[in-house]
Simulated assay, not measured.
Amino acid sequence: MHICFLTNEYPKAGFPHGGLGSFVKTMAEALVGKGIRVTVVGLNYVLSDETENVNGVNVIRIQKSKVKGLAWYFNSKNISKTIAAIHKKNPIDIVEGAELSFAFLPKIKDIKYIIRLHGGHHFFAEGENRGINWWKGFQEKRSFKKADAFIAVSNYVKSHTSKYLSYHNKPIEVIFNPINSQLFQPKDVAIEVNNITFAGTICEKKGVRQLIQSFPEVKEKFPNAILNLYGRDWLFPDGSSYVKMLQEIELPKLGEYAKDVIFHGAVSFAEIPNIYVKAAVCVFPSHMETLGLVAPEAMAMEKPVIFTKLGPGPEVIANGETGWLCNPHEPREIANTIIQVLSNPQKAQEIAKKGRQSVLQQFEIKTIVLKDIIFYKSIH
């Protein structure tokens, strides 16, 4: 079997990449480990063509077009030509991409095309309080029509996407994204008992503002509490910084507590376990997620985790049993949940141990990759 993933985000040293790139890397290497040929095709980070084999995965990066207004056309044409050339040499069984991937891709008869729902333009419109961009909306609808099958990374993304887009009665399977349980595992390191940790993009839909607003109530109960925020800044459409907005508008409202809210900036994926390991509690009050791997990754390290009760939250955590869920729009509820965890460290650790076991059952890469292979074979 030969699987071809489409992504422009496949990790490359010295260049930032998103969660989609991390997912494809994890999945691609696991498939190679099962004896499956894997190719990744996407646009390069730099202005040149490039091919390399990384841990058995053949990665082809294509030079981006610089033609203004028509770059999308030439990029799609070059990706199509590349797929056709690969298929001629080593026949491809499955091409997998995200929601917009197939909009301008001509289909090859012997190949099945799968969209994995990571959260597309229509899906996030509601969570980001914005309208549908006609061009992206058009591409997404066109891409969905071309797909032969779909994989949803949670029941929530499957049902929520169906409010906006049709699956055209084609096969669809819910398969969680995997976590790297070798990277995310318990470590024998001293916990900082007042350390509240968030990791993720510093933006509105991740609930960072409400988390900051919850902090004074936590400080009243735990005066030594520190709120550590790790992640890259998000920019408004006018280019202004979300972090700067928080620092200028939200932090002054905290008075003397503001000094204990610390923005650490972006950290590498490999560094995240070293951040979680010191935390007394990890808090991810997202407004909107497709699945949200930060919560299960922290749970895999036996950390007490507070996640959103909205969207896929209840699919990841059984509230009060494997972690905690809260309303991300209610700072008081976030604060009360943090206080509950910090007030009962022994109970919190018992729940954290159950959280790790739950995650290993649901998100272990060996389990996930087998589900993917079974689905690939079922549609080919």
Rank of each mutant, 00 (worst) to 15 (best):
L6P: 01
T7F: 04
E9Q: 15
Y10S: 04
G18H: 10
G19W: 09
L20Y: 15
E29L: 02
K34W: 06
V41D: 09
L43R: 05
L47E: 15
E50V: 09
I62D: 15
G69S: 10
L70T: 13
L70V: 11
T82L: 04
K88C: 09
N90G: 04
I92Y: 08
A98M: 00
F102N: 03
P106G: 11
D110G: 14
G120N: 05
H122D: 06
F123P: 02
N129K: 15
N133R: 09
K146C: 10
K146E: 10
D148E: 13
D148H: 15
F150Y: 11
I151N: 09
A152Q: 13
S154C: 10
S154V: 09
H160L: 03
Y167G: 10
P178W: 14
P178L: 13
N180E: 10
Q185T: 04
D188E: 05
G200Q: 00
T201R: 15
K206F: 05
V208D: 07
S214D: 00
V218F: 10
F222I: 12
I226P: 09
G231H: 08
D233F: 00
D238P: 11
G239L: 14
S241G: 13
K244I: 14
Q247W: 04
E248L: 11
E250S: 04
P252L: 09
G255H: 13
D260I: 10
I262Q: 04
H264Q: 05
P273R: 03
A280H: 03
S286A: 08
S286W: 01
E289C: 08
L291Y: 09
G292A: 11
M301R: 06
G313Q: 01
P314A: 12
E315R: 02
V316G: 06
V316Y: 08
G320E: 04
L325V: 07
N327G: 03
N327I: 01
H329N: 12
H329F: 15
T337P: 03
L342T: 01
Q346F: 07
A348C: 03
A348I: 07
Q349T: 12
K353C: 06
S358D: 07
I365R: 10
L370D: 13
L370W: 04
I374G: 03
K377Y: 11
S378G: 13
